[in-house]
């Protein structure tokens, strides 16, 4: 459950987010909007990389300003990046271990947790492959493994589908759908691919110029004329 209250983020003269208020209770929530709408900024506020200028965010009832940035992973806030951040000179298994080092294991054996996370992301056979030998798709999936190991409560994905081949996109889709059931974490999914959003997200929040212009069940929101004008119109123009 994410509660955003009157959140504004100011970068010098630019507004990343503008008085955004929203409550996101659904297990898989989409976050869409045109380029520069503030999607990544919202994820950055939740991960602690960007400090809100005003307003607050709560996750599962906890005000995030009380959670220091390096403790957010342990609290359960995880993410993947728009520009993938796999550590090249660690193996896939070590990449996951590096996160597991800092989050609760609930007394389960580390090795097993790492293997389960890799298997969940479809990397069961790649445990000992160094990061620099993984292909683009495997890196994406490795980020998901890192984000789901050890009791996450919120997994945020920033454009995980960008640049994937068809069958890879389908696998990604099925993995995203399973995250909630697999580890109980809420998923916040940013993507420009409307098909991916409508196939995976029960509810969707639409941002434009840093504010919410629509929120509701995905199909309904995507059919909203206001959304089509702000977002889909832009999308049709650019593609």
């Amino acid at each position: 459950m994410i509660e955003i209250d009157d959140l504004t983020v100011q970068f010098g003269g630019v507004r990343g987010l503008s008085a955004l208020t929203a409550s996101l209770p659904e297990p898989v929530t989409g976050l869409v909007g045109p380029n520069g709408a503030g999607k990544t900024t919202l994820i950055n506020v939740l991960s602690g990389f960007v400090r809100p200028t005003t307003g607050s965010v709560r996750v599962d009832g906890r005000d995030l300003k009380d959670v220091p940035i390096y403790k957010r992973a342990a609290f359960g806030i995880r993410r993947t990046f728009q520009n993938e951040q796999v550590v090249e000179n660690l193996t896939a298994g070590e990449n996951v271990a590096a996160v597991l080092d800092n989050v609760p294991t609930d007394g389960q054996p580390r090795r097993q947790l790492i293997e389960t996370a890799l298997e969940f992301a479809g990397l069961g056979t790649a445990r000992d492959v160094p990061g620099h030998s993984l292909n683009a798709y495997q890196r994406r999936m490795l980020e998901i493994a890192r984000a789901t190991v050890g009791r996450p409560r919120l997994v945020m994905m920033d454009e995980p589908g960008a640049g994937l081949a068809q069958h890879e996109g389908e696998h990604l889709r099925s993995v995203i759908k399973q995250i909630d059931g697999y580890c109980g974490a809420q998923v916040l999914l940013v993507d420009h691919d409307v098909d991916l959003i409508s196939a995976t997200c029960t509810a969707t929040l639409v941002l434009d110029f840093g504010s919410a212009i629509a929120y509701g069940p995905t199909q309904k929101v995507l059919a909203d004329p206001k959304v089509r004008a702000a977002y889909l119109g832009v999308l049709e123009e650019t593609t």
Binding site: G48, A98, V99, D101
Partner: peptide, 23 residues
Amino acid sequence: RPGRAWAMIRRSEVCAFAGGVNI
């Protein structure tokens, strides 16, 4: 553990923070 944390920091500070590393 320190080696893995250092590797994350070397990759990038956002990577380390997202992984919960106390940089």
